[in-house]
Design a protein around this nucleic acid. Structure first.
Length: 706
DNA sequence: CTCTCCCTT
């Protein structure tokens, strides 16, 4: 173990006798963080994400209304829900809010996550008659919040979800009908709806919720709404945010907007004032630099275990590696049951969440920031350890490389993390108010698809678009350059027919181009399968390789690579064999394939197939010749081609830099002359993932201007 | 001889 000369070590030893008090200072002043709102108390379910699970909707309803309540008189349920609505904090602002909307086109609402605005405001608007003038839309950054809000609202209104006035529309799930007036959806869904309804003519009110998350879709949507509002004078816009900073930016964008801060005026009974959040003392916090927060988190968890009453612990770390390190170190003390929790976790680990730990055994959940919003069991945890960090994808436009970057979490994230410890304590491994200010996604993303979407919606000069925060000009320029090379823009910068078609597909522009190109190579049937597989998950989420069965898993994987067909064709073979096995779960298990990824690929593929018809591409198939398939892929990915040089690769066009085929590729150590890759690893940007051999002459054929 | 946070059209 580390010697006692390490500042962290000393720190922890000094704190041993008196538990947290020495290291952590409780919040002294009242601060509206970590509010236990009535809604949070009532509506505690945080279901684990189950993509494409058709039984999900029902299970949400069942959780919202326990079995006993379902049997009770419908009227008494209705009465109970009606009373509950009045206890919500937001209820006190009902009239103020409606008045504000009546006399202003744009209203910004500042309120904490979970204060009831998502479920209540659309209902207030409906009750005030806005539903008679058009639809009431409410957008969310995430599909599952849209779905659970709609489920809750349909309960409160006593209507059947999706068959009456309340519905929702999220990826792969359209739960609406002609009767739907109150519609919950994701920002992305609404953005796509703008393709067919540029002025959102069917809506009378729109509420853009959780704008402070600053997702790509939210930012683009808000910018577009700025343009739409002048000609839609009878359209009301509400934007909600948890932070004042974001509210100010929105006000700046819309020349006149009314800001309603529903946090300040609220009053809480004393027991809701929190004395359960502990921060590091300033001098100690300075020791917690990026280098040792993992160590600090592990030690804090152990100290909680030694000094605090029973209750499960949730530790927020940043990635899978850290979780595995922490799991190993915490494994030693008995009476600790360790649960890892991260996206794309193997199914067998997921099962641990639902196992009840034996009496006297404390559960420690080691999670990434996924646990800020998803929570697999109904039971909460008593203790939260917040490292204060997360990992974020970032894009450098000048090198055109994507990387994962360690980032300090925002105040909003810290609040979400802390709110998981409703009745216990939250230990933050940083100073009070020492939050990060993460860049909005639009400033750290590859903008190719953003520019394509904007063009498709008639925004011809993206540098003059109303961004809440402008992206680097270089990123916009690089995006236009790639779109030109792909043939989506012509030499005067107009969207071409190819570009129009590409914009319809909900996948990355280069994949979208491959689909459009598959028309001329008569293999759209195969290409949409490959595109769906590549879009379904990142890197290794298709093949499963458990620690203890590496050899078996490798053998299973290599079966799809027979003939050295390349990783793209291997993915096609995986999809087709799964389909031939009737989409069987057993087949996935036997072949070490992750069924979650496959189900998602199937959903995406179905969607792509429907869109082929929309853009006039015939579903064509040439299963016995892989060359046309590879050519179609090359039409999208010529920019990712590399030529062999001795034992490594150099990009065909771009500053010299050696690349290697990733060891998990079917072509690892094969050294084909010329290859194309889907992506580079985010850590070193040196390893090509998903590699296929191509003929270098094709490059001239598919991208003469590149 | 290396291995990527979380979302979403």
């Amino acid at each position: 173990m580390a010697s006692s000369s390490s500042p962290v070590q000393v720190l922890y030893e000094s704190g041993k006798s008196d538990s947290d008090k020495k290291r952590f200072r409780s919040q002294e002043n009242y601060d509206d963080e970590i509010i236990v709102s009535p809604e949070q108390n009532e509506n505690q379910e945080r279901p684990v994400k189950r993509r494409s699970d058709s039984s999900y909707e029902q299970s949400v309803e069942e959780r919202l209304l326990g079995p006993r309540e379902r049997e009770a008189e419908p009227n008494s349920i209705k009465e109970k829900l009606k009373q509950e609505r009045k206890t919500l904090r937001i209820y006190g602002y009902r009239d103020v809010l409606l008045e504000a909307v009546e006399s202003n086109q744009v209203v910004v609402i500042v309120g904490d996550t979970g204060c009831g605005k998502t479920t209540q405001i659309p209902q207030y608007l409906y009750e005030a008659g806005y539903g008679k003038k058009g639809r009431i839309g409410c957008t969310q950054p995430h599909g599952f919040t849209a779905r659970s809000a709609a489920a809750r609202v349909s309960q409160e209104m006593g209507v059947k979800l999706g068959h009456d006035v309340v519905g929702y529309s999220i990826p792969f799930e359209d739960c609406t009908s002609e009767k739907t007036v109150l519609r919950y959806m994701t920002d992305g869904t609404l953005l796509h709806q703008l393709y067919g309804e540029p002025e959102l003519i069917s809506y009378s009110v729109l509420m853009v919720d959780e704008a402070h998350e600053r997702t790509l879709s939210t930012d683009i949507l808000v910018g577009l709404l700025k343009d739409i509002l002048p000609s839609r004078t009878n359209l009301k816009l509400l934007i909600s945010t948890a932070t004042l900073d974001c509210a100010e930016k929105i006000c700046e964008l819309f020349d006149s907007a009314l800001v309603l801060d529903i946090r300040i005026l609220s009053h809480y009974p004393p027991h809701h004032q929190d004395d359960h959040v502990f921060y590091l003392e300033a001098t100690e916090a300075n020791n917690y630099l990026e280098a040792n927060y993992l160590d600090a988190a592990i030690r804090t968890a152990l100290e909680i275990h030694e000094n605090e009453p029973s209750g499960d612990i949730l530790v927020f770390l940043t990635d899978r590696d850290e979780i595995e390190v922490a799991a190993q170190q915490l494994h030693q003390p008995h009476q600790l049951s360790i649960c890892p929790f991260y996206e794309n976790m193997p199914a067998e680990l997921e099962a641990q969440f639902f196992e009840t730990t034996p009496k006297g055994v404390r559960k420690v959940v080691l999670a990434t920031s996924i646990a800020e919003t998803f929570w697999p069991t109904k039971a909460g945890v008593n203790y939260v350890v917040d490292s204060g960090f997360c990992k974020n994808k970032s894009y450098d436009p000048s090198s055109e490389k994507e990387r994962l970057q360690l980032t300090r979490i925002s105040k909003a994230s810290a609040m979400l993390r802390g709110s998981q410890a409703l009745l216990g304590k939250c230990f933050r491994l940083y100073k009070r108010n020492d939050h990060g200010n993460p860049k909005p996604e639009v400033q750290r993303s590859n903008l190719t698809n953003v520019v394509l979407t904007l063009r498709h919606l008639g925004v011809n000069d993206s540098t003059r678009f109303h961004f809440l925060d402008p992206p680097p000009t270089e990123a916009l320029r690089k995006a236009s350059q790639l779109l030109f090379a792909l043939g989506a823009l012509n030499n005067v910068g107009e969207l071409t027919e190819v570009g129009e078609r590409m914009a319809e597909f909900p996948v990355d522009a280069m994949l979208s181009k491959a689909i459009v190109a598959s028309d001329q190579y008569k293999c759209s049937n195969e290409v949409i399968s490959i595109v769906a597989m590549l879009s379904a998950g990142d890197h290794d989420s298709v093949f499963h390789h458990p620690e203890d069965k590496q050899v078996d898993a490798d053998n299973a994987r290599m079966h799809f690579h027979s003939g050295n067909v390349g990783d793209h064709i291997a993915l096609l073979k995986v999809y087709n064999e799964w389909k031939d096995a009737n989409y069987s779960a057993q087949w996935c298990h036997e072949n070490y394939i992750q069924i979650r990824t496959m189900k998602r690929a199937r959903d995406i593929r179905d969607q792509l197939e429907r869109l082929l018809e929309k853009v006039g591409i015939e579903l064509s198939s040439n299963p016995f010749d892989i060359e046309p398939i590879k050519k179609a892929i090359t039409s999208g990915f010529f920019a990712h081609s590399a030529k062999v040089q001795k034992t490594s690769y150099i990009p065909v066009k771009q500053p010299p830099k050696n690349l290697h085929i990733h060891y998990r590729s079917g072509l690892a150590r094969m050294l084909p002359k010329c290859v194309l890759y889907h992506e580079l690893d985010l850590e070193t940007n040196q390893y090509m993932r998903q590699v296929t051999e191509i003929n270098s002459e094709w490059l001239q054929e598919v991208a003469p201007y590149y």
